[in-house]
Amino acid sequence: MSPEDFSYVADLVRTEAGVVLTSDKVFFLDTRLGPLARREKEAGVDALIARLRSQPTASRIQAVVEAALVPETRFFRNRSAFQTLADLSLPELVKRRGDKGLRILSAGCSSGQEAYSLAILVQESLPQTPTEIVAIDYSRRSLEKARAGLYSHFEVQRGLPIRRLLDNFEKVDENWRASAALRSKIVWSEANLLSDLSGLGQFDVILCRNVLNSFAPAVATACLERLEGRLAADGLLMLGVDEGLILPASFKPEAASGLYRRNVAFVREVKMA
């Protein structure tokens, strides 16, 4: 891949999705675009980019950008934060919401493991509470996999305890499929974190993990502000490990690493000013 082609694609990825590809990512990008070039029946990555540059249609841009995003995820990633959510945060929120139930957002859900982990927690600890989990991502391919809820032998064994696997998945050939009960709790939707999210409504808990750390700082801050706009005043925000540094003063950390609450004192000050 020529340096010109690399910076062309890197610019696209940054303006489209906010994700920064530093110049040491040439090999990474090449290996990501290879399979896409094959699917598109192009001679190779160079031909794929040449076609994109001469005819940059929305669907070509989308396909190249999503191929450059890192989909890495796992069930119950950062286990202790999920534990705190289940043991303390969710019951407390439910007490306040009563019959209204809960809405939870998985922002940057990738292939769905995060949303299914939430669905399992809700099923286990709040079986009576009507709960809607909304899961969004830029990547259509990731969303397709998430929606199918079909995971490999290796994927289910990283982070999913055996009991939770047996209770919530059925074996399909060599793979495992999330139960209909789990799948019915989640609404999947294609959405860009750089765009207006107000159509999604308001949430009691927002998870946005291992996404912001791939954005430029100013983009991450703006994205956090948009997410804050979607969060109930007493709602909770869950970031990835070590992602709290960029958090504005309008949030304060909860007990477990990665969980934050809106800083009510801060909100009040702003209102009085």
């Binding site: 286990r79 032998h153 290796f154 064994q157 990283r158 982070g159 305890p161 055996i162």
Partner: peptide, 17 residues
């Protein structure tokens, strides 16, 4: 716990955790 073969280091580490 239960590990289904084949496994790798990641899976054993996850189950140990």
């Amino acid at each position: 716990e239960y590990i289904m073969k084949p496994f790798d280091g990641d899976i054993i580490a996850a189950k140990f955790e």
